[in-house]
Design a binder for these strands. Structure first.
Length: 473
RNA sequence: GGUCCCGUCGUCCAGAGGCCCAGGACGCCGGCCUUUCAAGCCGGAAACGCCAGUUCGAAUCUGGUCGGGACUGCCA
């Protein structure tokens, strides 16, 4: 049978990077084997599921470039791929299991069950030792699966190897709530069977639930899929990745100026590697090399710094036209207004130089506002460090004179005349150029000087140098 | 508490008995380049948690120990 894998997010929140990483591995596995990647929505928790979250999740998946072959949004032979549309199916299975004796109704009140759990806790045993079919049978309440006590359940995990669970350590878990809705265990297991899922690759947090899913599948009369439990993602403090660690949802990364290719690449190296040497690689390379058997067993710390570095790699690798197109919104946001055609050409002139200096897209905007907005105030540190020195007025005067005399206003011409300044003034290059930089860009940190001056234009440049000169008195 | 998982540089990976006095990447430190900032290039510090055992030989196998984590819901 050909490979069929799925990704089954719950629309109870935004797309988390951990979920995205699991989706990515499933996608790579499907693409590598020429199989199908299916998107199912696990929305059995009606209280917390919303269509807004569902939309957000679909959008994030598309943004990352994980296209699915069947599922919500694209359809397929199995209906809506939304669990809330299949409640009748889960109820049907649940009653079949009750009829066959594999499951039973339980109407015990929650406080009674709670005391059983406390008893187990007190005796140092798994709750499974007490959460069992009561002597008195019921015909209402929740439905629990009766765990066969004969043999242990062995999970043959693709990444972890053989993991064994003793039957008494598995409780008779609820498959159908008293309100008739299925629990995650039931819905997920039924869907995996109905959708012919061959491999279930999911977070390691679900490993303890896997024996339950295996037993449920078998009780339904089917053979369970192959499982692969992926290592979890941690924050830099070694704890489970959460909001405390900054951005955790995919859309936040998108908004922060990360590129989907970079996020894809970074997520792929968390728990997997292309080979011993390569860190930056394409989707095609990843698809070619990916195998679930190569996935690491140990949890990975999500490192925003490395992601940022990788984003810079991708920013620099893209074509200059693409970069220009991509950063337009960021530039206009920094400038505070839409740019005219002429202004945009000014930006395009130095865009390649900005591109080299950009890791996150919004940074590009900050680098070029000087091209479009007047300098209301100079960067304080830059001014005190560069402009407060002796000889600066002379430098500005000399620069002004030289540039005023230029017939052609382009970077080579500007450079040619300014290059003569240090010698004619008898000062070092830094002392000659830094004051001009501050005068023209407002800061001692900027894109390369000659190109910046060229892009700014003659009138604005001369005006700004004049203003800085005036400020110096 | 119980069940289960994990344990190589600070971090992400490579390593499936000798190729490893452990390799690549981020970060860090130093240098080169340079008008600033980046980028680039060169170099450096930095790890097999610990203890036993198996073996001629162990990061790789086994046991123990310590540490971390997940789960322990009519949440997924």
């Amino acid at each position: 049978m050909s490979v069929r894998v799925r990704m089954a997010p719950s629309p109870t929140g935004t797309m988390h990077v951990g979920t995205a990483r699991a989706a990515l591995f499933n996608w790579l596995f499907a693409r590598h084997h020429g199989g199908a990647f299916i998107l199912r929505i696990d929305d059995t928790d009606r209280e917390r599921s919303t269509s807004e979250f569902e939309k957000e999740i679909l959008g994030s998946l598309r943004w990352l470039g994980l296209d699915w072959d069947e599922g919500v949004g694209v359809g397929g032979p199995h209906g809506s791929y939304r669990q809330s549309d299949r409640l009748h199916r889960y109820r049907e299975i649940a009653s079949e299991l009750v009829e066959s004796g594999a499951a039973y109704y339980d109407d015990r009140p929650s406080d009674q069950l709670e005391s059983l759990r406390q008893l187990a806790q007190k005796e140092g045993r798994h709750p499974g030792h007490y959460i069992r079919r009561p002597d008195i049978s019921a015909d209402s309440g929740v439905i629990r699966l009766a765990i066969p006590q004969e043999a242990p359940v062995v999970v043959d995990d693709i990444v972890r190897g053989s993991v064994s669970f003793e039957a008494p350590d598995i409780d008779d878990f609820v498959i159908l709530r008293s309100n008739g809705t299925p629990t995650y265990h039931l819905a997920s297991t039924v869907d995996d069977v109905d959708y012919d899922i061959t491999h279930v690759a999911r977070g390691e947090d679900l490993l303890p639930s896997t024996p339950k899913h295996i037993l449920l599948t078998r009780a339904m009369g089917y053979v369970e899929p192959l499982y692969a439990h992926l290592p979890l993602l941690f924050g830099t403090d070694g704890r489970k990745l959460s909001k405390r660690h900054g951005a955790t949802s995919l859309s936040e990364f998108r908004d922060d100026g990360f590129l989907p290719d970079a996020v894809f690449n970074y997520l792929a190296i968390l728990g997997w590697s292309l080979d011993a040497e390569t860190t930056v690689f394409s989707r095609e390379q990843a698809i070619e090399a990916f195998e679930l058997t190569d996935v690491s067993k140990s949890p990975a710390v999500f490192d925003p710094e490395k992601l940022t570095w990788m984003n810079g790699e991708y920013v620099r690798a893209m074509g200059s036209e693409e970069f220009t197109r991509l950063v337009r919104p960021d530039v206009e946001r920094s400038v505070g207004r839409p740019l005219s055609h002429d202004e945009w050409e000014r930006f395009e002139e130095i865009a390649p130089l900005v591109q080299e200096r950009t890791k996150l897209l919004p940074e590009a905007g900050d680098q070029v506002t000087f091209l479009f907005n007047d300098i209301d105030e100079y960067d304080e540190k830059s001014w005190s460090k560069v402009m407060a020195r002796k000889g600066v007025p002379a430098v500005l005067d000399e620069g002004l004179t030289r540039m005023s005399a230029l017939e052609v206003w382009d970077a080579p011409s500007i450079e040619a005349t300014l290059r003569e300044m240090p010698e004619s003034l008898g000062i070092g290059a830094g002392k000659a150029f830094q004051p001009l930089r501050v005068a023209v860009t407002g800061s001692s940190i900027s894109p390369p000087l000659f190109e910046s001056i060229s892009a700014l234009g003659r009138e604005r440049t001369l005006d700004r140098i004049g203003r800085a000169r005036q400020k110096l008195g």
